[in-house]
């Protein structure tokens, strides 16, 4: 088990290195000189040249990348151009809000999506199935920023029961959670349905039924375990997708999180923050994928057995 974990951890390193190259190149492709941005339009040529020197912008790109990478490995992502605070501090300050949102969104997605998919599969080809499936497809298709605005219109303006911005009470989290989780919910519902339909037809399920086990027990003991494996995969993939979704959610509900930090940084051409923020996102996605892989081993005794045998 430990070996499996370490092996997966090793896979993360080249991916993160790759991400650092990609984001470094993207950011440095950008037109506009950070030194000019920092000093504003009134700066003299001399001041700009001095600052460029100071920021290391005169060195060749690969040297700059080398410096960025060595510092990043030491946990230093540079300083924000706008606030002059260390990028790591800015990220850590914003991260709790984003993580809370992402986890709540996932809980919402699973809590609604899983039962919806199970229900649809159990009532296959009835109106219940059609309704659940259509609901899932709609959830997958409507833009989440629109859902956010419409919820706000309904629950903050027409029937004012929820606050439209801020994040100090639990009420602030209800709408953002729905907005963030709705797409994942739809995907989980669809995946659960098709996975259920496959498992229901397996011989061992028929055997269990033939033995006279109650439907409820067959569902919980025999079916669910196998249904969950592909569902966990898709939930893991969508967790990364959902982390991206915080950009929209945080913008709509004015939540000071990581997504807003990156968008604001791009507008302000604050490249160290963009670089550090995207790298941090990739790290989160990588860690989530790692956890999902571990969860597999827990859910699927076959995988666990494989690694026992390999040892």
């Amino acid at each position: 088990m430990l070996r499996y974990f370490l092996k997966r951890l090793m896979f993360l390193i080249p991916v993160l290195l790759g991400v650092s190259v990609v984001i470094f190149s993207i950011v440095h492709l950008a037109p506009g000189d950070p030194a000019e941005v920092m000093l504003g339009p009134s700066a003299t040529q001399e001041e700009i040249t001095n600052l460029r020197e100071q920021l290391g912008l005169t060195k060749p790109l690969y040297v700059q990348y080398g410096i960025f990478l060595t510092n990043a490995l030491k946990g230093d992502l540079g300083r924000s151009i706008k606030s002059n605070a260390p990028v790591v501090d800015e990220i850590m300050e914003r991260f709790p809000a984003t993580l809370t949102l992402a986890v709540l969104g996932m809980i919402f997605a699973i809590a609604i999506g899983l039962p919806l998919g199970i229900l649809a599969a159990l009532k296959q080809n009835t109106w219940v199935d059609a309704l659940c499936s259509f609901f899932a497809l709609v959830g997958f298709s409507i833009p989440n920023f629109w859902v956010g605005l419409m919820l706000m219109l309904l629950l903050s303006i027409y029937i004012p029961i929820l606050p439209s911005s801020g994040f100090d009470s639990w009420k602030n989290f209800i709408m953002p959670t729905i907005v963030l989780g709705i797409q994942t919910m739809a995907v989980i519902a669809r995946m659960t349905r098709s996975s259920m339909l496959e498992v229901i037809r397996q011989d061992y399920v028929r055997t269990a039924r033939a033995k006279g086990i109650s439907d409820r027990l067959v569902l919980t003991r025999h079916i669910l375990g196998n249904v969950l494996i592909p569902v966990v995969t898709i939930a893991g993939i969508y967790f990364g997708h959902q982390l991206g979704g915080v950009v929209i959610t945080e913008t709509i509900f004015s939540i000071p999180g990581l997504g807003r930090l990156i968008v604001d940084a791009i507008r302000a051409q604050d490249y160290p923050v963009v670089q550090g923020g995207v790298l941090f996102f990739a790290l989160c996605v990588g860690i989530v994928n790692l956890l999902v892989d571990l969860l597999y081993a827990v859910l699927d005794p076959r995988i666990k057995a494989q690694y026992r045998a390999a040892k």
């Binding site: 950011v27 950008a30 990364g240 991206g244 950009v247 990156i262 963009v274 995207v278 996605v285 990588g286």
Partner: peptide, 24 residues
Amino acid sequence: MRCMDVLLAIPQIILAIAIVGALG
């Protein structure tokens, strides 16, 4: 495929935002 893994490691919308941010 490893390059594709790298692209997949960045949430789609964040990647798109970064590219638009760089290109204008």
